[in-house]
């Protein structure tokens, strides 16, 4: 394991993108920062610019309007980086699978521009914060 990957695993800064979620996964992600879950223990930090981020947390099944923006945000991220699909919608569009306005899921959109992107999935509606932590840890240790 190179030192780059080691440091990345110890200090993943995440940028959060909602591509048409119902807010549930999003508030659970914010809840991760708060005293009960406190992911700063693991060096995880929510940052305000994709240029500072190592991991992209995507929630929502990607609406037609959000898809181009998702691609743009992914392009702005310095590599190496990991994409996390948080919640049933991000994994496979969930209950909105038959919607005319959903063009996702997330992995399809990301792979269109980067076939080798590293993508991890955390299902649930919404996944509990514990599940998100466990998903992030598992994905990082698989790097």
């Amino acid at each position: 394991m190179s030192w780059k990957i080691w440091a990345l695993k110890k200090s993943p800064w995440v940028f959060h993108v909602n591509t048409g979620a119902c807010n549930n996964c999003d508030i659970e992600i914010v809840a991760l920062l708060t005293p009960k879950f406190d992911v700063e223990r693991f060096g995880i930090k929510l940052v305000g610019s994709p240029r500072h981020a190592d991991a992209l947390l995507v929630t929502g099944g990607v609406t037609a309007q959000a898809a181009p923006r998702l691609r743009e945000v992914y392009r702005q991220m310095p590599k190496p980086c990991v994409v996390f699909c948080i919640g049933a919608c991000a994994c496979d569009k969930g209950i909105f699978a038959n919607s005319y306005h959903m063009v996702g899921p997330v992995d399809k959109i990301i792979r269109e521009i980067d076939p080798n992107a590293i993508i991890a999935y955390v299902p649930g509606c919404p996944p509990k914060p514990e599940a998100i932590i466990s998903g992030v840890v598992k994905a990082l240790s698989a790097l």
Partner: peptide, 21 residues
Amino acid sequence: WRVGPRLYQPFVDILKLLGKE
């Protein structure tokens, strides 16, 4: 009321940023 980061966290942050694009 949080636990907060570990002592080596700022060092790892810098190291990681050096390894990024």
